[in-house]
Amino acid sequence: MDVILPNLGFLLSGLATTAVLALISIVAGTVLGIVLGTLRYTSVPVLGQAAAIYIEFTRGIPLLVFLFLFYFALPALGGYKVSAYVAAAQGFSFFIGAYLAEDFRSGLRSVRPQLKQAARASGLTETQVFRHIVLPIALRRIIPTLFNQYVRLFKFTSVASVIGVSELTGRAMLVNAREFAPIAIIVTLALTYLVCCLALSSIGRALSHRFTVRT
């Protein structure tokens, strides 16, 4: 404790960075997941196939390599500069988006065709059927999966320290370099992630309980 307390402010602001990074990536990744999942679900020509290729590629490579693509490779290719923080946010969002896209697609597919038919029969247009029937049902059904992915993403954010983002893990390593108390620091770090992830999961459970679709 005597190494943690003096550095508490420093570590907590790292935790704040982690939380903001996770939140940005969760929101952006979810939006991307819905768009890509919808493109796959409706099998829009060209765009649907492009989405499929993107999803397959992203799901086939490690997160760390994906982050390196956004931090090193793409800026080198495009001749632009990007901060580690922005690269991490981009990388996480695009990475988690690919996984969420598949979850959304299976959620969208879980809606029975007869139910869509009934909605059409009442005069709803295809867009209205999607917006008011298919999407809300799919969203509710995948809340548990969604939050599993969010927890995964929260853990992922620790990898941002590797490209130099000063989030929780990065700051803990800095404190360790100064104080050299690796056991205390790493155990504290582990417990902090543990508590945050458990909290995130329990939010997910509460939401999925609240929004269960019973048939």
Partner: peptide, 26 residues
């Protein structure tokens, strides 16, 4: 279709909406 009501074998009520919301959506 809006001018013709239809009733199905398996009801096809929208499971995520309340009874009243089922009736008000369209």
């Amino acid at each position: 279709r809006a001018g013709i009501g239809m009733v199905f074998q398996h009801f096809e009520l929208y499971p995520h909406l309340s009874v009243l919301e089922n009736i008000t959506l369209a």
